[in-house]
Structures are given as structure tokens and as C-alpha cells.
């Protein structure tokens, strides 16, 4: 893109700058649009599984429902409770949303289509996603209200618990790919399964890790069946209880952006990213971005499906699953994967 702006007569620095800004907007704006649409899709899938019709009034098939909701909250009054810490109260949604956007900076959408192709990409994603817990904790604390406070505690403990096993799962992927760079990880998956399947999931040592990653991803983003942070029967609306207007909407947008990120990570780390499912020449005719989009959407469907069908966990079950099953298992697989690689590849 830099070359294009240079051809318009800019010098290299300016061309690079404008190209970067365009790249950022090309990520951020479609992402927000995608989030709006995905909320609608989520509701539709959920409704279909419950034999309901879902949103169908605003626009054709209710397609514009999310935008109507957005306009509504935009025009609402922002209520800041008198007991709240005002500065922190307003900073919390900003942190949540900013962090949710930031993680996408290193995501490869297609070959070369990545904003910052840094060589510690996966580490960056892990770091950014662990910052997300600040938004939740700060919102719960700043609200100075009972339910948000409980919810923030729960959310913090839950998110950090699953982050631990996610860290170890990522180590397994890094070990196999031999790199931290997300584009290189995708390329390492080319023909990784029996020389024909693009993706790490088709590997006896990494398949269990993918299963753990999928479940941990749901827990990390507090999606059902792990949505204890906003279990409405116990905690009203969780840490968002005191929020209204766009501040409330930002939590929603951030949450869905994180869910999409988890889907995209499933795609990138285990299902070959922008590569077609099989390593067959003809499939490469379809642009990589389309494959990426299809796979990511498929995972979103899985997330919705789970949300519609699986009942909510109890909190003690959730913590036991994270610390007593996922953590030892992922640690074991770090040993197995690295041992196998030492014997076959590096030894």
C-alpha cells in the first residue's frame, strides 16, 4: 500500500504513514461493523436453536437491528452513579475497547495482509489479551456497587485462571511451528497434516491442545457456558450493571471483538489461517481472505451453538476445570510436544 501512495507523489515517510493509517482504519472500522453484524447473527442462531424467529423488524430480516440498538444507546443519558469513582468509571470501558481493538494489529488476514508483522506476534496477543482484565476489574471497583464488585472478582479470577493454560497451549503451537510470528505459524501449517491437510489440528499431539484452546477461549472471553461474570440470575448484569449509554455498549463491542479474536486465533493457530483446508492447487484460486473469513465465521457459529445448548457451569466447577484439568494437561503436552520434537526434529 505504501508503494501506491508513493506513486501519488508522496515521499516514503508520508506514504508509509498514510498507508499505516489506512491499514488501521481498514482493520478497526470493518471490525466494528463485523461486531455489529455478529451480534445480530448470534441472536439469530440462538433464536433458531430455540425455535424462535429472533430480530426481524428493523430492516430486511432484521439486519439493521444492531444499528438501531447502537443509535438508541448513543442517544441515551450516561449515568454515572454518585458513589462511583468517576475517572476510573469512565476509563474502564475505554480500556476494554481499546485493548480489544489492539490485539488485531498483528492478525494476518491473508498472505502479507497484516498491519504489524512483528516476530513476537503470539506473545503480543497474549500480553494484550491479559490487559483486558484491567477493564473488568476497574469497572467493578469504580462502580462502588455490590454486584459489579463480586462480578469483577469472579471475572478476574476466571480470566487469569484460563490464561495460564492458554499460555501453555500457545507454547505447544510455537514449539511445533518454531516461531512466534503469526504469519510464519500459518505458513508452517501448510500441508502439516499428512502432507495434505493445512492445519495443526490434524496432528495427534496438537489436536487435544486445540480442544483445550477452544474451551479455554470460551472461558477467557466469559462466553456461555462460562458466563459467570454476568450471570444475570445472581449478579444482575455483572460488572456492567452500573453502566449505560455508549459506555455500556463499549463493553459489548469489546466482548464480541474478543470473541471474534478467539475465533480468528483458532483459525490462525490450528486451522491454517488464510490457507485453504487442503493443500491442493485448485483451492488456492479462492483468495486467502475468503478462507480466513469462512473459517473464523465457522468458529463463531461453534461459539453460538455452544452458548445456545450448554447450561452454565458452577463457579467451583469452572475453577476446578481450569486448574486441575486444563493446567496439568497443557503442561503435560508441553513436555510431550517438546520431547517428540527433540527426538525427531532437533535431536
Amino acid at each position: 500500500m505504501t508503494a501506491f501512495f508513493e506513486s501519488l507523489g508522496m515521499n516514503y515517510e508520508w506514504a508509509w504513514f498514510v498507508a499505516t493509517i489506512c491499514g488501521i482504519l481498514l482493520i478497526a472500522l470493518p471490525l466494528m461493523l463485523a461486531v455489529a453484524m455478529i451480534i445480530y447473527v448470534d441472536r439469530k442462531i440462538w433464536a433458531a436453536m430455540a425455535l424462535r424467529r429472533g430480530p426481524n423488524v428493523v430492516g430486511p430480516f432484521g439486519l439493521l437491528q444492531s444499528f438501531a440498538d447502537g443509535l438508541k444507546v448513543f442517544l441515551q443519558e450516561t449515568i454515572i452513579p454518585s458513589a462511583a469513582n468517576k475517572g476510573l468509571f469512565l476509563i474502564a470501558p475505554i480500556i476494554t475497547f481499546t485493548v480489544a481493538l489492539m490485539a488485531w494489529a498483528v492478525m494476518p488476514f491473508a498472505e502479507g495482509a497484516v498491519l504489524a508483522d512483528i516476530n513476537v506476534g503470539l506473545l503480543y496477543i497474549l500480553a494484550i489479551s491479559s490487559l483486558g482484565v484491567y477493564g473488568v476489574v476497574i469497572s467493578g471497583w469504580a462502580s462502588n456497587s455490590k454486584y459489579p464488585f463480586f462480578s469483577a472478582l469472579r471475572a478476574a479470577a476466571q480470566m487469569i485462571s484460563y490464561e495460564v493454560s492458554i499460555g501453555f497451549i500457545l507454547i505447544c503451537v510455537i514449539l511445533w511451528a518454531g516461531t512466534n510470528n503469526l504469519s510464519d505459524i500459518v505458513m508452517a501449517q501448510k500441508g502439516a497434516g499428512l502432507g495434505i491437510v493445512n492445519g495443526f489440528f490434524f496432528n495427534i499431539l496438537l489436536f487435544p491442545m486445540w480442544v483445550l484452546f477452544l474451551i479455554s477461549g470460551m472461558a477467557e472471553t466469559a462466553r456461555a457456558p462460562f458466563d459467570l461474570t454476568e450471570a444475570e440470575s445472581e449478579l444482575v448484569a455483572g460488572y456492567q450493571t452500573e453502566y449505560s449509554s455508549m459506555a455500556f455498549a463499549l463493553f459489548w463491542l469489546g466482548e464480541y471483538a474478543n470473541v471474534l479474536l478467539m475465533c480468528a486465533l483458532n483459525t490462525t493457530l490450528f486451522f491454517g489461517g488464510w490457507l485453504p483446508p487442503l493443500d491442493i492447487g485448485i483451492l488456492y484460486v479462492v483468495p486467502g481472505f475468503i478462507w480466513w473469513l469462512l473459517k473464523t465465521f465457522f468458529f463463531f457459529f461453534v461459539f453460538s451453538w455452544v452458548k445456545a445448548t450448554v447450561p452454565r457451569f458452577r463457579y467451583d466447577q469452572l475453577m476446578r476445570l481450569g486448574w486441575k484439568i486444563f493446567l496439568p494437561m497443557s503442561l503435560l503436552f508441553v513436555v510431550l510436544v517438546s520431547g517428540y520434537l527433540m527426538l525427531t526434529r532437533y535431536g
Binding site: T20, I24, A28, T98, A105, D117
Partner: peptide
């Protein structure tokens, strides 16, 4: 390499 991330942060 990291400059785009910084710019992204400002925009976000």
C-alpha cells in the same frame, strides 16, 4: 515494526 502498533493505540 512496532510503530504501527503505537499509531493503532492512539487511534483506538
Amino acid at each position: 515494526q512496532y510503530l504501527p502498533i503505537l499509531i493503532f493505540l492512539v487511534i483506538a
